[in-house]
């Protein structure tokens, strides 16, 4: 069964198992690396993408459920060499240690900022709470989202 997925504005017709979770399709069919396998249980957020503006885990949901949705991954944010303001802010705050969780943190932060460009700290903490970070970079992620919200009003 052919399946159509639109990732970062690019549509692809795919001949794959429609039950395959989106994560593996992103990595194997689209050659993307941003979304990562962390738990496969919707507990950690490393596999997040922005699906119609919401941060959604992709490690369990079959890819067919994402048809018709507008999917943005972390790779789709920069405009050529120009980083997206939230990417810029993550870099400026040097918000990463190993960086395995960074995708989840950035996507969760972006989903928040798209709805609420001026969140308070509690709102940021709640938004990022879905993402596991074992390196303890939490405070930098919170700050990176906050700094981006201070310098930009639209995401």
């Amino acid at each position: 069964m052919a399946l159509i997925l639109k990732i970062n504005g690019v549509e692809k017709v795919l001949d794959i198992n429609p039950q395959e979770p989106l994560l593996y399709v992103l990595r194997e069919e689209f050659g993307l690396n941003g979304s990562k396998f962390g738990c496969g249980l919707q507990q950690c957020g490393t596999c997040f993408v922005l699906a119609d503006g919401e941060a959604m885990p992709t490690c369990l949901q079959p890819c067919q459920n994402f048809q018709e949705m507008d999917i943005i991954t972390i790779e789709g944010l920069a405009d050529g060499d120009k980083l997206h303001p939230l990417q810029e802010s993550f870099f400026n705050e040097q918000a990463a240690q190993c960086g395995y969780c960074l995708n989840g943190m950035l996507i969760a932060g972006l989903a928040l900022l798209k709805k609420n460009a001026k969140p308070n700290e509690d709102e940021i903490r709640i938004a990022l709470d879905k993402v596991i970070c074992r390196c303890g970079t939490h405070s930098r992620f919170i700050r990176a989202v906050k700094k981006a919200s201070e310098t930009h009003s639209k995401f």
Partner: peptide, 10 residues
Amino acid sequence: IKKLVKGEAH
């Protein structure tokens, strides 16, 4: 970290 924020292979 620049590579990481862009989701490049790492």
